[in-house]
Design a protein around this nucleic acid. Structure first.
Lengths: 100, 100
DNA sequence: ACATCAAATCTATAAATATCGATATGTAAT
DNA sequence: ATTACATATCGATATTTATAGATTTGATGT
């Protein structure tokens, strides 16, 4: 776990928002048409729509967050779904609490 | 409290270290000559020495951290002492826990 | 094979950050 | 007032980040 990298991931309002939105996909996103529920997370297009940022920017941000292990990506058909990595978030939180 | 600004402050290894060092000044810094103990924190020079970065960089970083309300500065004579803002750190932690 | 669509990658630019050396400011001692 | 010292600010440059449009890749359906 790279705490500095995680902090950098969370040092941008759009990315911070994404992580919050993913806590409650039912509340924050419309239902998917190709899969039922949000078990694998939320597709990139929905996150892009909600954020108002461009597709390339969101793809880039999600990649950064995946690299920091904050989220987990799952490709199904044409879509990539992103969900929170709760284990890493819990570990991060614990480490932060200890350090700070 | 600006969580994004705080996260940005903590997205740099030197600044993250400083905050950690300030948790235990007795352990991490030599004793001051002009004041007794670390009640008001640690002087800039000691932090600079320990970090290995230039005086201007450290002064800048401490200013950033003060701006994010992570630390509190106290000027005594020629020296400025910096200590952790424990109240803000606790509030930050609580907010982060809620958001994330 | 081809067209279509979602997402990823590439290219580019503007803005912010990291960091330093040089200079200025504030305080204390002479 | 002058000197000395600690810290702050200024000016500069290199690196990184933010963000978008264009292009490519991967998957599906025809």
């Amino acid at each position: 776990m790279d705490i500095i990298k995680i902090n950098a991931s969370l040092a941008n309002a759009a990315r911070y928002d994404i992580l919050r939105w993913l806590k409650d996909p039912e509340k924050n996103f419309p239902p998917h048409k190709e899969v039922s529920g949000f078990g694998d997370g939320v597709c990139v297009s929905f996150i892009k729509d909600k954020s108002g940022l461009s597709q390339s920017t969101i793809s880039h941000y999600l990649n950064m967050m995946e690299n920091a292990q904050l989220v987990i990506a799952t490709r199904i058909g044409k879509w990539t779904y992103y969900k929170r990595n709760e284990a890493m978030l819990a570990a991060y939180f614990k480490a932060l609490q200890k350090d700070i």
